[in-house]
């Protein structure tokens, strides 16, 4: 299962990097969303999958799945939600101000 997951993680990263390299600001926003999915799955996979019961002590199981990556991922989901929404609003504002969402046209630096 871990190898299957690793391959899927690779695919998620491939697609998200491909989207990052596109010209549309929206696709870049989607790319961050996808990449955060990839990272979450990666964190879970690293500790091994399905190694025991859900991490509830009242199950009285012999083994539980590793709770630490789950706690990490839980935090990461919330933070990535914050990142995505901020990026989305920034894309919105950029479009309102510059009337374009094409990164090629938005290109420029402070000293120009």
């Amino acid at each position: 299962m871990e190898i299957l997951m690793s391959i899927m993680i690779g695919i998620v990263f491939t697609v998200s990097i491909y989207l990052f390299l596109s010209r549309s600001l929206l696709r870049v926003t989607l790319a961050t969303l996808l990449m955060s999915h990839g990272v979450h799955l990666l964190l879970l996979t690293l500790s091994g999958l399905q190694r025991g019961a859900s991490p509830f002590l009242n199950f009285q199981a012999d083994a539980y799945s590793d709770p630490l990556p789950q706690a990490l991922v839980l935090t990461a989901i919330v933070i990535s939600f914050g990142v995505t929404s901020l990026l989305l609003v920034m894309a919105y504002r950029t479009f309102k101000v510059h009337n374009t969402d094409d990164l090629e046209e938005l290109r420029g630096s402070a000293d120009e």
Binding site: I9, G10, F13, T14, L21, L42, L46
Partner: peptide, 14 residues
């Protein structure tokens, strides 16, 4: 680039 990156991540994960 994207495939290279994805492949690296797969290897890192495994």
């Amino acid at each position: 680039i994207a495939v290279g990156f994805g492949a690296i991540m797969t290897l890192v994960s495994i």
